[in-house]
């Protein structure tokens, strides 16, 4: 299998996903099968092919420097799971 258990755990850490042992095993198998399939891309010689940079044409589409009022703290915090002092409240950042 292309993926080891440690690699699965490393990826989960990079993506901040807490996985159960069962999930780690299952995803290891499934992701390995997918990676086996995508490996066929390696067959192609792309040494003289540029990556597809963007899909949006050649204009930069900038906007003028005009300020508009924000949503306001009250509206912004309506969806917040927790708040205090007009800010998003979260458990301590320190461990």
């Amino acid at each position: 299998m292309p993926l080891t258990l440690q690699e699965v755990e490393h990826i989960a850490k990079l993506a901040r996903l807490e996985l159960t042992d069962e999930e780690k095993t299952r995803y290891r198998e499934q992701l390995s099968a997918i990676l086996d399939h995508v490996a066929q891309l390696q067959k192609l010689d792309t040494s003289s092919v540029p990556p597809l940079a963007g899909m949006s044409g050649s204009e930069s589409h900038l906007r003028p420097d005009l300020a508009r009022p924000g949503l306001g703290a009250a509206e912004l915090l309506k969806n917040a799971p927790a708040q205090a002092d007009a800010q998003f409240k979260i458990p301590p950042v320190f461990e």
């Binding site: 901040r16 996903l17 807490e18 969806n79 917040a80 799971p81 998003f88 458990p91 301590p92 461990e95």
Partner: peptide, 20 residues
């Protein structure tokens, strides 16, 4: 942090890992 449900944890890192 800013929207959607949150699974609580002791630290902010817990919240990230558990919620996701």
């Amino acid at each position: 942090v800013r929207y959607g449900p949150r699974v609580e944890g002791d630290s902010m890192w817990d919240v990230f890992y558990k919620t996701r």
